[in-house]
Amino acid sequence: MTLLSCRGLRKEFGGHVVLDRLDFDVAEHEVVALIGASGSGKSTLLRCVNLLEEIDDGTIHLDGEHITDPRVNPDKVRQRIGIVFQAYNLFPHMTVLENIVLAPTRVHKVPRATAVATAREWLARVGLADKAGEYPDRLSGGQQQRVAIVRALVNSPRLLLLDEVTSALDPELVGEVLSMIRDLKSEGVTMVLATHEMGFARQVADRVCFLDGGRVLEQGPPETVFAEPAEPRTRQFLSRIIEAGRL
């Protein structure tokens, strides 16, 4: 079943066209990796899907509902989509636990005791049970990123968007975040992740989409796209990545 469907998306920033009649679909339980050069619009696409950016043309449907209809309340849509940013963006004035229960208690009106119990369960699962009372600035980058992912997950989003969640981390810390994402995949969480880690995209993604010129230029299973890319632009991009030693 199609969970997310973008048709003819267009987004420009002051005349600079970033997304140009882009079509993009995600099926339920699917994990899609967005790859492409820096500035190709991966973050922009994710922000548009989460309605953090207003699109200039096209439509986005989530679960068959037209969410870019101006009459739709964006707050209600965002409640069904989780997004995690490269820079974690935890709230520095709240403890880890408060960060996680904020949306469940305030937005989803879950009783506090229930929200706290769920939060503690998640923290235990990702190995951060003892950090519930800490403030974010006392955690390592990898720990903060896992908290940020948990903060998005406790709202049981239909779709989880991950924007380069490992690129601010030291190589040793990348592993713990990646294994967490692999676990989520095995549970059937639908995810779209923008990434520069081709190895990771290859391991975890069901499908890889190469963004170029404001569109999805090429897509397919990772084995195909990485091993025998059809488009010259994809080949060029991948060979540059290989030179940089990131494949």
Binding site: R78, G82, N89
Partner: peptide, 28 residues
């Protein structure tokens, strides 16, 4: 602004974002 984006992306309304995320940090 990334704090605002993070709060809004969790589904908080503008008012909830101000009250729980922006103002506590601002006043401090």
């Amino acid at each position: 602004p990334s704090q605002l984006a993070a709060a809004r992306s969790l589904g908080l309304t503008y008012r909830q974002t101000m009250r729980h995320v922006v103002l506590p940090q601002a006043v401090r």
